[in-house]
C-alpha cells in the first residue's frame, strides 16, 4: 500500500506565539519590554504587573531591569485589573500584561468599572491580538477591539511593528487615563523606519500615496498593506496606505480628508480583527455619517466565526489577510 504524498508541505503550528515575521525580514527583539524598561528609568511611578505571562508579553525585560517594581499577580486576570486599579489609586502607573483574550473576555467588568469608569491611569498591554497564534479560539483574540470599543473613555492602540511599539510606549504613558494596547512580542518585524513616520497618540498617518486604492489599516495589517501596495505596482495599481494605530478615539478628520481628497479611490480597510466591531466598521460609520462617500468600500479582516487552529501563514491565507490575499482581493475588487 502506498501513501500519497501531499502536493504542498504541511506547515506546523509552531509555538503559542508564532512569529509574524516573514523569512529574512528585519526584526527587533522585545521592543515593548525594552521601551518600557527605559521609560521606567525616567518615571518612577511606573510599575509592571502580569497575570503569569510576563515572559510571553516581553514584560520580563522590565522585570529584569526593575525587579522591585514588578508584581506577579498570578493566573488571575480579574485580580490583575483590580490590583492595577488599586495601584493607580495610590498614584502609580501600572502596566498590566496578559493575553488579549483574557483581558477582554474574562476581565471585562473589571477593566470597565474598576479602571475605565474611574478614569484611572492604567495601561493594559496584551499579546496575541487578532490572529497571531495557531492555537485556536481560546487564544485568538479576533474580537478584542469589538469588545472594547464600546467601553467609554478607553483609548485603544493597535501598533504595526517594533518601531511603532517603541515609539508608542512614551505617549501612552504620558496620556493620563486608561489605554489598551495590542502587543506584538518576541522578534517583531521593523518596517516603519523606512517611512517618514512618527507615532502620535490619536493620529492616523499617511505612509505612502497612491491614486487607485486607499488602504486604511492598523496593527500588523499596515505591514501587509505596505507589502501589497508594492506588489500592486506590477499590475499598474497605485495604492496609498493610511496607518491608524489609534482605534479609539479614531482620527476621523484625517480619515475623512484622505478619502475626500481622492474620492475615486477604492477604500480598503485592513485589520487583524473580526470584520465586526473593529476599525472597518468605525471607518464606515465615520465616512457615512459625514457624507464622505468613496467610490467603493471593502473590508479585509477576520471572518465572523471561530477560527481554525494551524500554522499562521496557512490561516492568514485562509482568512484573506496574507499579503498575497490582500493583493488578489484588491485586484478582484478593482476589476469588479
Amino acid at each position: 500500500m502506498s501513501v500519497e504524498t501531499p502536493a504542498k508541505p504541511r506547515l506546523k503550528t509552531s509555538a503559542m506565539i508564532a512569529s509574524i515575521a516573514a523569512e529574512g525580514q528585519r526584526t527587533i527583539s522585545a521592543p515593548f519590554g525594552h521601551a518600557l524598561a527605559e521609560l521606567a528609568a525616567k518615571k518612577p511611578e511606573i510599575v509592571g504587573m502580569s497575570a503569569d505571562l510576563a515572559k510571553y508579553t516581553d514584560l520580563h525585560i522590565f522585570r529584569e531591569a526593575h525587579p522591585d517594581r514588578f508584581y506577579q499577580m498570578g493566573m488571575a486576570e480579574q485580580l490583575l485589573m483590580m490590583a492595577g486599579a488599586g495601584m493607580a489609586r495610590e498614584g502609580f502607573q501600572p502596566w498590566l500584561t496578559t493575553y488579549a483574550v483574557f483581558a477582554t473576555r474574562r476581565a471585562y467588568d473589571f477593566l470597565c468599572l474598576a479602571i475605565a469608569e474611574e478614569g484611572l491611569d492604567v495601561k493594559v498591554a496584551c499579546a496575541l491580538p487578532g490572529l497571531t497564534t495557531g492555537y485556536g479560539p481560546s487564544h485568538q483574540a479576533s474580537e478584542d477591539i469589538a469588545i472594547l470599543r464600546g467601553m467609554p473613555e478607553l483609548t485603544i492602540v493597535d501598533p504595526c511593528d517594533a518601531i511603532d511599539i517603541q515609539q508608542a510606549v512614551q505617549p501612552i504613558s504620558d496620556h493620563k487615563g486608561p489605554v489598551y494596547m495590542r502587543l506584538l512580542r518576541g522578534k517583531v518585524p521593523a518596517v516603519l523606519d523606512e517611512y517618514d513616520y512618527t507615532f502620535e497618540l490619536g493620529k492616523a498617518k499617511m505612509l505612502r500615496e497612491g491614486a487607485d486604492v486607499l488602504f486604511i489599516s492598523s496593527g500588523l495589517m499596515t505591514m501587509r498593506a505596505l507589502e501589497a501596495a508594492d506588489a500592486l505596482r506590477a499590475d499598474k495599481v497605485e495604492a496609498a496606505v493610511l496607518h491608524c494605530p489609534t482605534i479609539k478615539p479614531l482620527d476621523e478628520a484625517t480619515i475623512r480628508a484622505a478619502v475626500a481628497a481622492k474620492p475615486g479611490r477604492l477604500v480598503v480597510v485592513a485589520e487583524n480583527h473580526s470584520v465586526i466591531g473593529g476599525l472597518g466598521e468605525a471607518v464606515a460609520a465615520s465616512l457615512l455619517g459625514s457624507g464622505t462617500v468613496p467610490s467603493g468600500f471593502r473590508q479585509i479582516g477576520l471572518p465572523d466565526r471561530f477560527l481554525d487552529a494551524g500554522a499562521l501563514p496557512t490561516l492568514h491565507d485562509r482568512y484573506g489577510i496574507s499579503t498575497e490575499q490582500v493583493v488578489a482581493r484588491t485586484l478582484d475588487w478593482l476589476d469588479a
Partner: peptide, 25 residues
C-alpha cells in the same frame, strides 16, 4: 467614597492593589 462599588467582587482586589501601593510608598 473611595471606590465605585456595585459590581460585587471588585473591592477586595482593589484593596490588594492599594495595599501593595501603600507598601511601595
Amino acid at each position: 467614597m473611595e471606590i465605585s462599588g456595585g459590581s460585587l467582587g471588585q473591592g477586595l482586589g482593589i484593596a490588594v492593589g492599594m495595599g501593595l501601593g501603600l507598601k511601595r510608598k
